[in-house]
C-alpha cells in the first residue's frame, strides 16, 4: 500500500515541483553499532557482520569489526561459536536451521553484550512460474507471474527476487504480506522486466518472520528518502535500543527456469 501511496504523491508533485542539491547543517552523532545478521536455510546458514554508523556527510567508511565474539544457540540445545573469514564476516559451519525452532544470537563486543532471538519460518515453495504475453509489447515480450500457495491460518510475509541471467542484477520485486491471496494462491506479477523465450530466469522467494518483514519494509521507507513521510525514523528492528540493524530470519526457495519457446506454465513442483 505504501508503494501505491508513494506513486500517487510522486506523480502529483512531478507536475509542479523543482529540485536542487543541497548540503544540510546536521548534527554530529555518536557512532552506533550496526549488526547485520541473517539466518536462512542456505549454505552458511548464519552470517553476521558488524560495523559502525557515521555522520551523514562523512566520507563512507563502513569497515567491518572483527573484535566481537558471536555464538548461536537454539531452544533445542544447539550451540555454535561463529568463525570469522578474511572479509570480517562471521559465519556458521554446523548450523542447519530447523523450521519453527527458536534461535538466539549472542554478540559480545568490547562495549556491550546482548542477545536477540527469532523463530525460523518454514519454507514456502514456489508453486509455479507462468510467462504471459505482455499486451502492450511484442509477442516475445513476456511478463512473469510467480504463484505461491499461502499457508492457511497464519499471517505470512514474503520477499521476491527475480534475475535474468547474463542481463540484469538480482533485484527485489516484492516485499509483501499475504493480503492478496489470503489462505489461497498468491500471484506476484513481475511487470518491470520483460522476458523472452530462451532467457534463463532465477526466481528466489523468501518466507520471512514477521519482525524481519517489518524490518525490511521500514528499511525501504527509510532508504527511499523522506518524501514527506508522516513518521520518518529508523527501521523497526529486533535489536536492543541503541543498536542498528536486525537479526533477520527467512527460509528461501530458489528456482532456475529457462523460458520455453512456447510460453506456457512451468510447474516447479
Amino acid at each position: 500500500m505504501k508503494k501505491i501511496y508513494s506513486i500517487l504523491m510522486i506523480f502529483l508533485f512531478a507536475f509542479v515541483s523543482c529540485d536542487e542539491p543541497v548540503v544540510l547543517d546536521l548534527d554530529e552523532v555518536e557512532s552506533q553499532l550496526v549488526v547485520e545478521a541473517v539466518l536462512t536455510n542456505d549454505y552458511n546458514a548464519l552470517i553476521v557482520s558488524l560495523s559502525h554508523s557515521q555522520n551523514f556527510y562523512s566520507e563512507p567508511d563502513f569497515e567491518r569489526l572483527s573484535s566481537a565474539s558471536i555464538r548461536v544457540t537454539s531452544d533445542k540445545g544447539f550451540y555454535e561459536q561463529l568463525k570469522i573469514n578474511e572479509n570480517k564476516v562471521y559465519y556458521s559451519i554446523d548450523l542447519t536451521p530447523v523450521e519453527n525452532d527458536e534461535y538466539t544470537l549472542t554478540i559480545e563486543t568490547p562495549e556491550k553484550t546482548f542477545s536477540v532471538s527469532e523463530n525460523m519460518p518454514p519454507i514456502v515453495p514456489i508453486k509455479k512460474v507462468e510467462f504471459v504475453p505482455n499486451p502492450f509489447s511484442g509477442a516475445d515480450s513476456l511478463n512473469a507471474f510467480v504463484l505461491v500457495d499461502d499457508t492457511p491460518g497464519k499471517n505470512n510475509f514474503f520477499r521476491l527476487f527475480v534475475q535474468k541471467i547474463g542481463v540484469s542484477k538480482r533485484v527485489e520485486y516484492y516485499l509483501i504480506d499475504d493480503s492478496f491471496g489470503k489462505d489461497a494462491v498468491i500471484s506476484m506479477p513481475v511487470y518491470y522486466r520483460n522476458f523472452s523465450p530462451g532467457d534463463t530466469v532465477v526466481v528466489e522467494l523468501w518466507h520471512l518472520s514477521e519482525s524481519t518483514y517489518k524490518f525490511f519494509t521500514t528499511l525501504n521507507d527509510n532508504i527511499n528518502g523522506s518524501f514527506n513521510s508522516i513518521a520518518p525514523g529508523n527501521p523497526v528492528s529486533n535489536m536492543p535500543p541503541g543498536i542498528m540493524g536486525n537479526f533477520s530470519v527467512y527460509s528461501s526457495d530458489i528456482d532456475t527456469i529457462i523460458v520455453p519457446e512456447r510460453f506456457s506454465e512451468i510447474d516447479q513442483n
Partner: peptide
Amino acid sequence: TLPAGKYYIDGTIANLYT
C-alpha cells in the same frame, strides 16, 4: 525529522535518525 547519520546494511545505505 532529518537523519544525522548513516550506516550500511542489506547492500544499501540507511539513514540514521536521532
